[in-house]
Amino acid sequence: MYKRRKIERRYVVIIILVVATLLLGLFSYSINDNRKLNIIEKSIKDAGLIINKTINVPINFVKDKIDEAKSKHKIYEKYKKLSKKYEKVELMEAKYQESLKEIKELKETLELNKTLSESSYLNASVINRDIGDFYDTMTIDKGSKNGVKKDMAVITNKGLIGRIIKVSNFNSVVKLLTDNDSNSKISVKIKVNENDYVYGLLVGYKEKNKTFIIEGIAENTEIKKGYEVTTTGLGNTFPSGILIGKVKKVSTDNFDLAKTVEVESLVNFDNITYVTILKRNMEK
């Protein structure tokens, strides 16, 4: 009797271990960024988030009005800044047109069709943000029906914030740059003067300092605080020239062989309401 019970207990332990392993495998598979949502998931997610979005509309309206009222006293200062900038706009416009013409001619010469830097824009609202707390994601109200595809870059008016990882019919999930996923290293460049760039790799995010870490920069390169950091367009995910932030701190590694640069984003990742998706026209 005792022996039989012992054997039964052993079976129970084995079954529990097998089920736990299978479940962990399932969790691991389901959380993978490369997993596509199935039809059932898409339908439930769409239905749930439509309700969420509908309720958000009046709340967003009130929130926008409050923000508007708060920023009203700064209008005169903004006007002064903008009128100064406006004087330069015509000159820049002429330069821009000239550059566009030049690029077009060069492309014709090199027989290039479209590059990764050519994108169209799609604005979206944030429906919810990182409810699980550990995921560094947010859900936006544009999906495959609006032309959104996996791996498209997502920006705000202050710079890059992340990429699309999951697409449903009417909403998508954005993985933020603040996520320390080792598989999502981004090729970046630091503008050291008018024409020169230094290339590096964005490898992670320092939660404590709220800065991005860039590695792979030679020790003999001079990098100063305030230099702009943008994407290079290498790696087929992010188009080139998207602002990531400005250099905040430069330090050398333990062996004095390479520099590590801390970059501060201009985006407030804790409070994002509206975003823009860069819809790539074509990749070549």
Binding site: F27, S30, I31, I44, G48, L49, N128, V173
Partner: peptide, 12 residues
């Protein structure tokens, strides 16, 4: 529902 709508996981 929490898995599907908020965290994009299955059964977690």
């Amino acid at each position: 529902l929490y898995d599907i709508i908020y965290t994009n996981t299955i059964f977690l």
